[in-house]
Design a binder for these strands. Structure first.
Lengths: 362, 362
DNA sequence: GGTTCCCGTGGATACGTTTTCACGTATCTC
DNA sequence: GAGATACGTGAAAACGTATCCACGGGAACC
């Protein structure tokens, strides 16, 4: 339990001033001879600079914050792994918070990060833009991943969703130019970079695929934060959209199951459903089985998120894959680069992976 | 981007000294009138104490460290959720590291925690006791979860595993007294508390179940850290144990698949396999399917870990459930309580959940 | 009424680091 | 060879907090 050596100890042992030690260890200039001596002494004393002192001096904690809704959701596990991998290679610690999809808990966790002086956070937001604006104004550099916070105080608005207009501003991967619509810089969250999957394309592809199989009554089963996907669904399915076929759970597995079960029972005429996330997909197959609906004979299913177990399902699930790990990694890169140069958002491609959960309409 | 108020600002605004403010906010003694005034001013200035200053002053970071092998593994996701829930209710931030099951990365992450002055960590250890001993001697209070670090420098030793002797010392849940064996305080990791599942009982139950179905050639498919389970398996299966039927992957999904596939091909005579973890179980069903082995007709399967998708499998997987979330929660409790009173280890019960992946031997 | 005790309070210090500033020496330039 | 320039170096300040210590005043006690 001997106490750790401080920079002062090293300085004394090496016969130099603390400033010199600090410079040597921080990569500053120093004569080769002293540098070598300091390094030797430091190694011999097993000296490790205290992040506490450094952080206080620079008035910021080195680390990153990471806020996800639920680590039990495999997708967020993948995303977190990506963030951690990038952070580790940068030598940055990451403090993690699980919001449970609850804006209140999220706010609480943000407060904690603030208190810790963690000034860089990558978040899968649960709260709306109104809760995030102050955070950003407070000087935090934040990068959103997987989704954008919905605009506050607006009710459902299906023709022209705010998230969509924000997306217009995004740079597509590989330099693909943004869509040729009105750029109107919807500066809602004050230009927060984000790493998103190309939800619109993914959903569109899935819907077209189902359409091609003959399905006409297609439902969307979403969870919190799936608004953009729901809107993409509405767009893909085309007017008039049957709003009864767009249902949401609140985030828990129970709620997802309830939503799925309710959907199947209230609308026995539907022949296909696209689930907005893997827990929704899970709920859908569970509910279908419970109601003796066979997949894909009675109902076709495509699920957002490719997860290892999708292949193990009976039948193996057709999915819209999004690169969770990459998204986390890129988000971390963005938040690290921020401050150097202004970061731009990134949209990563999705891929429809066809397995066995979709069939022709009976 | 206005800078945050410091304790000094509050003191001046309230017309008191900084010491008084600190006392009021830390729950020390103060006259009701000043307390009220200070509180009011603090609220009005939106003052939040800086963890930086406090940590430096007390020479320790408030937070907890959490080290898990892989967040993509649903079980560790559950465990992490438990830790986070407990930590949040205690107001403690947690810095997370993913070791990838690699002792080297683990050591690196420990170094980072040390540098951050995080002095309490709950870990699913990847390195052996030799790598952990110095950490503990350095004054860290650590709690192990899910498994114990294997003793260093010892090769496979099947008759009497060191982990088992360490387990003897553990307190069973609900005050059940420890097993009546020689207590010989195997002070290997110098009395580190741990939260474990009752692997031995879980495995034993599963093996007996398979035995009852007529299976005689039962294999164990393990991953890193599953040594205790493997030993429990050997014990349950009884001498002589066919060591060819005990195989290990190295942690990655690919490696798990390779191990499973190799096992099935080299020993077509086996009729049942117990997988030591959910990624191993996943690999087993994948490999079986690839080799045209039907579950449970050709081979029965029971998997350690109950995960949501076990039920979605074809067929639904019979599993040994362990309470991942609870384990994380309890581990966090232990690490928080440590220092107050000496924490004792905890063993949580497992449960065999019978679904459809086991059948009678053909 | 004087002494003692206790409580509320503020000043000062320390925590370990980075960074600024000034000083001295060695090198370069004309 | 004298001035200027560059560089290596150490002392000291600052970051925001908790805590030790001393001081003052009121209450309690004899």
């Amino acid at each position: 339990m001997e106490k750790r050596a401080t920079i002062k100890d090293v300085a004394e042992a090496a016969g130099v001033g603390v400033a010199t030690v600090s410079r040597v260890l921080s990569g500053g200039s120093a004569s080769p001879s002293t540098r070598e001596r300091v390094l030797a002494v430091a190694a011999q004393l097993d000296y490790r600079p205290s992040a506490l002192g450094r952080n206080l001096r620079q008035r910021r904690t080195g680390g990153l914050g990471l806020l996800v809704p639920d680590l039990t959701d495999t997708f967020y596990g993948q995303l977190s792994e990506g963030v951690l991998a990038c952070a580790r290679s940068a030598g940055e610690p990451v403090v993690l918070g699980s919001t449970g999809g609850d804006p209140e808990q999220e706010a609480e966790l943000i407060g904690m990060l603030l208190e810790q002086s963690v000034d860089r956070v990558i978040a899968v937001p649960s709260g709306d833009a109104e809760t995030w604006a102050p955070v950003i104004r407070a000087g935090m550099t934040v990068v959103f991943a997987d989704r954008l916070p919905p605009e506050a105080g607006r009710e459902e608005e299906h023709d022209r969703d705010p998230a969509e207009s924000a997306l217009d501003d995004l740079m597509l991967l590989d330099g693909v130019s943004p869509r040729g619509r009105v750029p109107e810089v919807a500066a809602r969250p004050p230009d927060v970079p984000a790493v998103l999957a190309d939800d619109r394309a993914g959903i569109r592809t899935a819907v077209r695929y189902l359409r091609g199989l003959g399905h006409r009554r297609i439902a969307f089963l979403g969870g919190p934060g799936h608004d953009r996907r729901a809107d993409a669904f509405r767009e893909a399915v085309g007017a008039p959209v049957d709003e009864e076929l767009v249902v949401f759970g609140t985030g828990s597995r129970d709620s997802a199951y309830a939503a799925a079960s309710g959907l199947f029972q209230s609308r026995p005429d539907l022949s296909a459903v696209v689930a907005g996330g893997n827990v929704l997909g899970e709920a859908a197959v569970l509910a279908a089985r419970e109601l003796d609906l066979r997949v894909p004979r009675d109902v076709s299913l495509v699920m957002y998120d490719d997860v290892p177990w999708a292949e193990l399902c009976a039948p193996p699930l057709t999915v819209i894959a999004q690169p969770g790990r990459d998204m986390g990694y890129r988000a971390c890169e963005l938040v690290l680069r921020e401050g150097t140069r202004r970061a731009r958002s990134v949209v990563l491609p999705t891929e429809l992976i066809i397995r066995g959960s979709c069939g022709p309409r009976r």
